[in-house]
Design a protein around this nucleic acid. Structure first.
Lengths: 136, 136
DNA sequence: CATAACTGTAACAATATATATTACAATTCA
DNA sequence: TGAATTGTAATATATATTGTTACAGTTATG
C-alpha cells in the first residue's frame, strides 16, 4: 500500500460496526476520522464495491455494514483498498543488458508476493468484530 | 515502506554478491538498476550504516559486501531501509471526542505491528545467497 | 606529486502521489 | 417543495519521491 486508505477504511468500518445497523453520514464519519467528507464518500464507494457496506442516498441517508462484523476479516479490508504491491517495485526498468538486472523484477515480484501473502494471512486472523471488541 | 528503496537495496546487494568480493562502482550499479548514481551512493551509505556493505573512496574505489551472502537475510535488508510502518498510519489525528476515534491509533498500531512482523518473518526465510541462486 | 577515478554530500529541481476543497447534480424523506 | 444527503468531477494544495548538478575530499598510480 501507499497511503493511509487502509487506516481510513478500518476506521469507517469500526464506526459502522459500533453503530449496530444505524446509518452514519459521511460527515459524521469524517468528523471522527478528522478528514474531508469527500474522501470518506470515496472510500465508502470502494467499500461498497467490495460488498462490505451499503449506502443510501437522500435525506436520512448514510452508510451501514452489508454483513455482520464477525463475517468481515481485516484481510478483506486490505484487499479492498490494495492497489499496488506492498513492497514498492521501483519505477525504473533495470538494464536489460545486465544479466542480473534483466531478471530482477521477476524475482522481486515472487519475493513480494510471498511476503505480502504472509501479512494478509496475519490480517485474516482478526475479524472486524474482534477488532471492535478491543475498544472500551 | 513507502518507496522503492527495498527493491534498490536488494538489487545492489545481489550485484555485489554476484561480484564475489570485487568492488563495484556506484556508476556500474546505477547502470544495472537504471537510476541515478547519487541515489545508489545514498543507499550504499545506508547499507553500510547497517553493516551490510563496505565501501572504499578514491580511485579503484567502490562497494563490496561486508559479510558472506549466506549470512544476509532479506529481513536484514528490509530492516535497513524501513523508515515507517508498513501500513501507513493516516496523517490526521482522529477526533479525541469520539470514543472510537480516540482509541483508533493505538489499536491500529498493534494491528500493524503484528502484520508487519509476519511479513518480516517471511523475508527472514530467504538469504541473499539463496536469492542470488535463483538467477540463471 | 600530479592526475584521474572515485565516494560523500549538499542543494536544488522535477515529478509523482496523496489529500483537501469547492461545487453541484441527483436522490430521498417528510 | 425544501432540507439533507450521497455521488462525482474538477481543481488546488501539500507532501513525498526521484533526479540532477556541483564540487570537496580521498586514493591509486604512473
Amino acid at each position: 500500500m501507499n497511503n493511509s486508505r487502509f487506516s481510513i477504511s478500518v476506521h469507517i468500518l469500526t464506526l459502522l460496526a459500533s453503530a449496530k445497523g444505524e446509518v452514519l453520514t459521511s460527515d459524521y464519519l469524517a468528523g471522527s476520522i478528522n478528514i474531508n467528507p469527500v474522501l470518506v464518500r470515496k472510500e465508502l464507494i470502494n467499500l461498497r464495491k467490495h460488498n462490505l457496506i451499503n449506502s443510501r442516498e437522500g435525506k436520512n441517508g448514510g452508510a451501514y455494514l452489508s454483513k455482520a462484523a464477525k463475517d468481515i476479516r481485516l484481510s478483506d479490508v486490505y484487499e479492498a483498498v490494495r492497489q499496488s504491491p506492498l513492497l514498492g517495485q521501483a519505477k525504473n526498468t533495470p538494464n536489460p543488458k545486465c544479466p542480473i538486472g534483466r531478471q530482477m523484477d521477476n524475482h522481486l515480484t515472487n519475493l513480494y508476493d510471498d511476503a505480502e501473502r504472509a501479512m494478509v494471512e496475519q490480517l485474516r486472523a482478526t475479524t472486524l468484530s474482534q477488532f471492535l471488541n478491543q475498544f472500551d
